[in-house]
Amino acid sequence: MLNPSPAYSGYTAYGYLEPGVDYQPFELAAEVGRVPGYDLALDAGEQERLNRLLSENIVFSLHEHAVVLPEDEGQIRRYNRTGRQRTGYQGLAHSQLTAVIDNFMAGASCVTSTRGWKWDDMIYALGFRLADLAKQDFVRLATSTADIHAAKRDGHLALVAGFECSTMIENELDRIDMLYGFGVRQLGIAYSQSNMLGSGLSEPGDGGLTTFGRRAVERMNKLGILIDISHSGDRTCMDTIEHSSVPVMITHAGARAVWPTDRMKTDETIIACAERGGLIGLEAAPHTTLSEAHPVHTIESVMDHFRYCVDLVGIDHVAFGPDTMFGDHTAVHRAYAGNYAQKSPEGVDHPRVEYVDGLENPGENFINITGWLVRNGFSDEDIVKVLGGNAMRVLERVW
């Protein structure tokens, strides 16, 4: 494990308030060392190269939920209903990240409804966490690429606020402007289930981007909001790529040719996204980016998708969005299984895991990704691209 950032002072979430008086306390999962560390088996030269690549370059995760979960699985929904999810400052201090698009676990907030994705719930999730960010000096809200470069220069971590879907705007186009004003710089189209903009990937049919969805894409383009299509249906993905005047991203997914589930993207979608200048970020949430070669989900499974996508569209259009959190990710899936159930493909089975070895939380992901790339002979130039160079190039155009 590498040393934590010297800019981190030890602050913990809502440290400016009194637990039990100002907010409801929960026993939280460990941010560091919750599961055994992943053995990269690097020699001294490889370890030195890993350290140098992380220290000298922008390291950018396209998709995480940088919050700490309760230790008790049975408390997850109760915790989320308070709206006060805890940023994992300690874990992030160990991450070597320069920037992260944080998607706030907003769909799980369920403050005013048990079904999630309500406007008020998004404002709870966003407002509480940004108030907390303002009370400490390590993690900084980023709304421009200049903010990310400044974070690298100053040894801080830049947090980009994003939401995985736009369901909460309902049919109110101006709510996109409001979210931009609150600091949001990334929005997904649909989260598995359809909404006013388009179809989600779990639907039996995909009607594509709606007329309202096209107007929403145009508004996001005008404002400078990154559009994410990770959870959208195939036709909605293609329509969004075509209609957007700037590149869009698949911030967290994999290749369906490697693992045949609807959660993965077709070659057609990945190629179209890349041809318009976008990226695919490789996903690592448990039981997503598996492969026939590595059906037990580990970093090796994820990297099978990485190699495939690099061969398909080139290294300039691939990055990483591991989609992890601090705590038991599989417990979240169990807690919300009834909310966001997805289709189970016929004939596709695999062993279940408690966590993805090597990509378990935001604090370790990019250390292990970089180590894997070093160990497997990728050049410095290519590693710098997938760690953050590709993401920054696209965001310069979008923002």
Rank of each mutant, 00 (worst) to 15 (best):
R86F: 15
F320K: 01
R375D: 01
I148Y: 02
N3D: 14
M1Y: 08
A146Y: 05
Q136F: 09
P70M: 11
R115G: 07
A125Q: 06
M105A: 13
R34H: 02
H294R: 14
G181I: 00
L42M: 06
L187E: 04
C309F: 00
L141Q: 15
A161P: 03
D316T: 08
A285Y: 15
L312K: 15
N103K: 02
T266L: 13
N221P: 07
G74L: 04
G10H: 07
Y89R: 07
L69Q: 07
A131T: 08
I315A: 07
L40A: 01
R256E: 12
Q47W: 06
A151N: 03
G116E: 00
H297I: 08
C237G: 06
G198P: 05
E71C: 00
R81K: 15
R397Q: 15
L282G: 10
V100K: 09
S301T: 09
A44K: 13
P36R: 01
A30Y: 03
V217T: 04
D349E: 12
V394Y: 00
I76G: 05
A293S: 13
P345V: 10
S192H: 13
Y340S: 12
G321R: 06
V248A: 08
N221D: 14
I383P: 05
E31F: 07
A30K: 14
Y16N: 15
G358K: 09
E170R: 14
H350I: 05
G15C: 11
R140N: 02
I123L: 15
N368S: 12
A106P: 00
T269Q: 12
P204E: 01
Y89V: 06
M249C: 14
G327N: 03
M325H: 03
R397A: 05
E18I: 14
A293I: 11
A99N: 03
E292F: 12
V35H: 10
F60K: 01
D239H: 07
L141R: 09
V313I: 13
S244I: 14
V111W: 06
G377W: 06
A106F: 13
E172T: 13
I229L: 14
Q85H: 12
A391W: 02
P260Q: 09
